[in-house]
Nucleic acid binder design. Structure first.
Lengths: 330, 330
DNA sequence: ATTCCCTTGGTAATCGATGTCACGGAGTGA
DNA sequence: TCACTCCGTGACATCGATTACCAAGGGAAT
């Protein structure tokens, strides 16, 4: 490994000072054109590239976006990150990912770690319930998927309530009255909002809500099967299931197919691969993780550029894709 | 934002020098126990945490693992990254992700960028065909999924040839002779190895290989449908398809279901969600992205710790999961 | 002609932590 | 008692880029 090329090497070759070389590289105007040319030539000849670490140390901020999610391997977050990374790369920024595994403590640790690293911006899918401490964050923060609490901040969300209403209304309009709700833990506020939508739809249709039809589960655990079996074994089983979470949908459908209970109507909040190839094909509420990533990154990059616009909560579009499973009669 | 706590603040409070404080923090032994106590107390009182950037600048290496993949949102790579990130977090290291989008130029750029940042190690799923330039890399490198060329390096791979043989042999043993191969671009060496396995299986069974049965496609593009339709519309269509790539499988199956051609036997290299819920359920060659991530990270961390063991190419286990689609008769 | 301003470039401090080296004092062997 | 080693300690230089401050030279204004 040859020795690293430093700014002073460039300056020496261009017969000027590091200060002037720095000015040229950072695009300052107050440099004589011949000096500028010499520096640029030297940069090219030596293949100089500024040391990002040294630069960050001095500037007090790193050209890096920190992304905090539940789990990198969750397809939803994977897509979000992919999009963020794409946008970052276009701007020669790097992306640091950190997962919380949905643990509040872990979230604090990773966010703290990222701030220590002086990231230029943060995109967070938070699992904690208070973000007041981020008021003093030294960099812009954009929340995704879940709102910020006690903090005025940008956020890019899915309209959970509306999405759930879309799905449940659809089932109701196809004659269902016994509709179960299966979703994430109710500790997650996304899940609560979706449950609110479900509740609202039932109320508007004059259907009484039954607690035994509402199930919150951990989508990463494999116990989905038993839960569904138990639900179907009750004296008055539901004729339709609204799954409020994509990963839950996968588990539930796997079980329904195993039990050959594909007569049960089904709507999934969130599309997934093969949804159209199942028998019957699965009706879904589609939302786009990519656009969440894009919007969040865009917002963050603007803030990082110094844009002082008022904070905004953006909701991404949402639509129902009827495919068959949601149109089954009771 | 309050001013950052520096090492010199700690040293001042402990009435010692920054050097000694540094010694305590980095766990050197040659420090008097009373001095050590004072420094530790000061660290606690001030809530001091070393600045990772400054430390990295001085040390010449950052506590960071760079991961280079085709695409972060690819479920395979997402799982790999998730596992690497998990292991890194346990060691208080951070993970920087960068995607190449399968472009060789882009790969060079991102790797170069990561080295500039002085990552402590690199995990690369490379798309380029020459890695000699990494001989001089200032940090350990582990290749995943695809081999290193012109470079003696650790690698964690799937045994592509063996996996393909497993799948194709299985189809042959169920009486198929007209077996199509559908996989990734043949520019990708993973795809070539799998094709080799396919070829080998056919040869051993005395089946002539037909060029019109071998299709390389870009799994990220949506043209899979037409390709499959064309394949099935030939005068002598295959009775079985071996899909050598998970994302190809998804596209192909979607098409087969749309065309109601579920009579065609099918084996997928790579498991996926809902494979067991399709009709018929899909027989797959299962391999675990998590274990690839884990093995690669483990190898890398050991190298980073200074382990000078000989380089090794690790292949992860692989097994066939018969579910139905691979056992259909011609 | 002299003062003043403005452009341009150099010197040195800074970011925060750590490696080098030297020093003072205690312990040891002669 | 003297020379020598060993240990704990701290002053200072260093990593590489940025920047506050200062200085010099040239042109314009009086």
């Amino acid at each position: 490994m040859t020795r690293r090329v430093r700014l002073s090497d460039v300056a020496a070759l261009a017969a000027t000072s590091t200060k002037t070389a720095s000015r040229v590289i950072n695009g300052h105007t107050k440099v004589g054109s011949d000096t500028r040319d010499r520096v640029e030539k030297a940069v090219r000849e030596l293949g100089y590239r500024p040391d990002p670490l040294a630069r960050s140390l001095r500037r007090g901020t790193d050209d890096t976006i920190g992304v905090v999610v539940d789990e990198v391997s969750d397809p939803f977050f994977a897509s979000v990150i992919g999009e963020i990374e794409r946008m970052a790369l276009d701007r020669a920024m790097t992306v640091i990912v950190a997962s919380t595994q949905r643990l509040v403590d872990r979230e604090h640790i990773v966010i703290d770690g990222l701030l220590q690293r002086r990231v230029a911006g943060l995109i967070i899918a938070s699992v904690s319930h208070d973000h007041a401490h981020l008021k003093a964050a030294p960099c812009p923060v954009v929340f995704i998927d879940r709102v910020a609490v006690n903090l005025d901040s940008d956020a890019v969300l899915v309209d959970d309530r509306a999405g759930a209403r879309l799905g449940v209304d659809h089932l109701i309009s196809h004659g269902h009255k016994r509709i179960a709700y299966l979703g994430d833990h109710l500790g997650i506020d996304t899940a609560r909002s979706r449950l609110d939508g479900y509740r609202e739809s039932l109320e508007l249709a004059g259907i009484a809500m039954r607690d035994d039809y509402v199930i919150g589960m951990d989508p990463s655990l494999a116990d989905g099967g038993q839960i569904v079996e138990a639900l179907l074994a009750t004296p008055e089983p539901p004729t339709a299931i609204f799954s409020a979470n994509t990963r839950c949908s996968l588990r539930v459908l796997s079980t329904l197919h195993r039990l050959s209970r594909t007569d049960i109507a089904f709507v999934s909040f969130g599309d997934f691969a093969m949804a159209d190839a199942l028998t019957p094909p699965i009706t879904v509420i589609d939302h786009s993780p990519e656009s969440i990533g894009r919007l969040a990154a865009d917002r963050l990059l603007r803030r990082m550029a110094g844009d002082e616009m008022p904070t905004q909560t953006i909701t991404t579009p949402l639509h129902l894709v009827p495919r068959g499973s949601g149109e089954l009669a009771p």
